[in-house]
Design a protein around this nucleic acid. Sequence first.
DNA 1: GTACCGAATGGTACTCGGTGCCATTCTGTG
DNA 2: CACAGAATGGCACCGAGTACCATTCGGTAC
Lengths: 197, 197
Amino acid sequence: MDTATAPGLRARNRERKHGRIRAIALEAFGERGFDEVTVEEIAELAEVSRSTLFRYFPTKEDLVLLDDSSRLAALHATLADRPADEPAVASLRAALLVLAAAYQHDRPDLVARYRIIRATPALMARTLEQQTDREEALAAAITRRLDGDEVRARALAAAGMAVVRVALRSWLAASPDTDLADLVAVTLDGLVADLAP
Amino acid sequence: MDTATAPGLRARNRERKHGRIRAIALEAFGERGFDEVTVEEIAELAEVSRSTLFRYFPTKEDLVLLDDSSRLAALHATLADRPADEPAVASLRAALLVLAAAYQHDRPDLVARYRIIRATPALMARTLEQQTDREEALAAAITRRLDGDEVRARALAAAGMAVVRVALRSWLAASPDTDLADLVAVTLDGLVADLAP
DNA sequence: GTACCGAATGGTACTCGGTGCCATTCTGTG
DNA sequence: CACAGAATGGCACCGAGTACCATTCGGTAC
């Protein structure tokens, strides 16, 4: 069979297995807790060997953590498209709203994962680490708009990511039809108002 | 009726050993890297058994991580002392400056630790986790000043901690006589200016 | 269809951080 | 001086993660 071999049949099978293992793991973690389920158990549930499982997911934590690379790409694309002479906060705001919209799309998945993450300190720690990596990249992109002042850029980027993080948290706890972009906008406005009263 | 009355000889010996082990560990980590030194090696260097070492430090990471409880107590004391009708950002600013002053005191120790922390993702992750715990406490204290709006309080607290984090980072890279409180103030002012231009 | 090559898999043995338990050795105090 | 409780060391164990090897499987060229 060669009709749909453009992505590569092998790669597609691998992708499918990847998703299947992750789904099984998330269910087990959700029911019994991240620390209460061993990698070996997941391997058995997914009917693969421990070796194979570690080939698909380099660490146990990777079974839960998200891959935000595409969402971040959208954020940076937005940032790059904004006029160079626009105030930095305006560009940042636009970029954050795009990020929020990207998150909005797969809310159910996010809810499931974050329930596990927030209940597991080690996962929380790694999630925060991911966020500062993004913060770093965001700061680099903003630095140009702030006359090369790295410290100010980092502070602005950190504040922006903090707004998203806080908004995301209440969004995940809110009713399913709440709009994340609205929440981000409101939170950002609130922060501005509180900082410069 | 024993812990608070006298220094307690036993407790003092324990304290001394605690410091000695940590000093030895920090030196080894600083020279060879956190991941390249095993707990067993540190135990040998410190001339204690692995068991004993784990009684002094529950995890390997605790050999490096800081105990900020006293600094945070100072921050919260300051916050509590501010007039209740003061704008939240003013109280926050005062509290952050107190925190900065507390850090200023033992700069050399902080420099040594942060060199190791920043070079080790796992330590970085746990440090960030600690910071969000503090953020949470700070947000709770601020909530009262913001008419009980938790989301706004969290955003403000997160922004404040982000400012400290960013300022701390450049402070540790700057010349030894730089004043952290100044850096925090400047960074906070810069953030306000950038957010509300 | 067959032969072949590389990817995918399973298994085993290992390292290291961390836990639990027990027996022994201090050490400060009554 | 005696004794309770702390401190210590040693051991056996668990789980995550790594390295390596042998086998099997799947796509492709012929």
